[in-house]
Simulated assay, not measured.
Amino acid sequence: MADLVETAIKAGNFTILVKAVKAVGLTEVLKSPGSLTIFAPTDDAFAKLPEGSLDALLQDIPKLKKIVAYHVASGDVRSDDLVQIEEAETLEGSILAIESANGAIKVNDANVIQTDILTDNGVIHVIDKVLVPAMVAGGTSS
Rank of each mutant, 00 (worst) to 15 (best):
M1P: 05
M1G: 07
A2Y: 09
L4Q: 08
L4R: 09
V5P: 05
E6S: 14
E6F: 02
E6V: 07
T7V: 13
K10F: 10
A11K: 14
G12V: 11
F14E: 04
T15V: 11
I16A: 10
A20K: 03
K22S: 00
K22R: 03
A23S: 06
V24K: 00
G25M: 08
G25R: 09
L26Q: 02
E28V: 03
V29E: 12
L30C: 04
L30W: 04
K31F: 06
S32Y: 07
S32Q: 14
P33L: 01
P33F: 00
G34H: 02
S35M: 11
L36C: 03
L36K: 03
L36V: 06
L36H: 03
T37L: 06
I38Y: 02
A40R: 04
P41N: 10
T42E: 09
D43T: 12
D44C: 08
A47P: 12
A47T: 13
K48V: 13
P50L: 04
P50Y: 04
L57C: 11
L58E: 10
Q59F: 00
D60L: 02
I61Q: 04
P62G: 11
K65V: 00
K66R: 13
K66Y: 01
I67N: 03
I67E: 03
H71Q: 07
H71L: 05
A73I: 06
G75T: 06
S79K: 12
S79E: 12
D80F: 10
D81T: 15
L82Q: 09
V83Q: 13
V83C: 05
I85H: 13
I85Q: 13
E86F: 03
A88L: 15
A88F: 05
T90A: 04
E92V: 02
E92K: 02
S94R: 09
I95P: 00
L96N: 06
A97K: 15
A97I: 14
I98D: 07
I98W: 07
A101W: 00
A101V: 03
V107G: 12
D109N: 15
D109W: 08
D109C: 04
D109A: 10
D109Q: 14
N111V: 11
N111G: 08
I113F: 04
L118W: 02
L118T: 07
T119L: 03
D120C: 00
D120Y: 01
G122E: 08
I124P: 03
V126H: 01
V126P: 01
V126Q: 03
I127A: 05
V130Y: 06
V132Y: 10
P133H: 10
G138R: 13
G138V: 07
G139L: 12
T140A: 09
T140F: 09
T140D: 11
S141P: 00
S142I: 06
